[in-house]
């Protein structure tokens, strides 16, 4: 059964058509990759799915429910959680409190939400920063923090927007392992990424976007052979 269905999603900003008729069905537990050149509409797609933006037309069906036009908080509460390309920590708070804000959804008491947050923080490998102010984290730590906050909501599907961007290769490997772990635990993952090695290693299916529309969709090995993909995004050298 598919957990997420996008039916003819379009989004225009004035005359600019940022998304054009995107139709995709994502089965439960899939690891679904999205690539495309800058401005292809990848982040807009995430924003429309997660409720930060309303679509101009089309429908989003999540877990059998039409969530088109739902507010972002309601979508997140239902189990569809996204992260942001630019990290957005709550800077007045410690790492623990950043995550416990998300845990509060399940645990009303601050103490219980912190217990739960501490478990999630340990899972993403941030325990040594538990009581540090979130603003003092290095980039790799902030990326893990974004993941921890999203995981603390216990999502059914995670939308990850360039979670590897800005990291050096040695920092990427443990995060890739972490993403595999999360996926193994039963979370469906949809991710936008530019690091092709990670895309090839993780994606079960791969969507290539170009100028707001689907260029092609398929198994990663096939997709990267497609001459249109090579021309629009990868370049001849890939």
């Amino acid at each position: 059964m598919s957990i997420l269905k996008l039916e003819g999603l379009s989004k225009s900003f004035g005359g600019l058509r940022a998304l054009r008729d995107v139709t995709v069905e994502i089965p439960e537990r899939e690891f679904f990759g999205i690539i495309g050149p800058n401005g292809a509409g990848k982040t807009t797609l995430f924003s429309v799915i997660a409720g930060q933006l309303g679509p101009t037309s089309g429908r989003v069906v999540f877990d059998g429910q039409d969530i088109t036009g739902w507010s972002a908080d309601k979508v997140a509460g239902a189990g569809l959680v996204r992260t942001f390309q630019l990290m957005r920590p709550f800077e007045s708070m410690t790492v623990l409190d950043n995550v416990s804000i998300a845990s509060h959804r399940r645990f009303r008491s601050t103490a219980k939400s912190r217990d739960h947050a501490a478990e999630v923080i340990e899972r993403v490998g941030l325990s040594q920063y538990l009581n540090k102010m979130s603003g003092t984290l290095p980039t790799a730590g902030l990326k893990r923090l974004e993941l921890a906050r999203a995981l603390a909501l216990e999502p059914k599907i995670l939308l990850l927007d360039e979670v590897l961007a800005g990291l050096v290769p040695t920092e990427r490997a443990p995060i890739i392992d972490l993403l595999r772990d999360i996926h193994r635990d039963g979370v469906t993952v949809m991710f936008v990424e530019h690091i092709m090695a990670a895309v090839m290693a993780l994606s079960e299916r791969l969507l290539v976007m170009h100028e707001g529309a689907e260029l092609t969709l398929g198994v990663p090995e096939d997709v990267v052979q497609d001459p249109r993909v090579v021309e629009a995004y990868l370049g001849e050298d890939f």
Partner: peptide, 20 residues
Amino acid sequence: RYTQAIRDDPVAAESLGIPI
């Protein structure tokens, strides 16, 4: 605590399920 999270970053707070 939600209120302070919203002050720090409303977009992030909303995406964590908080009706801001």
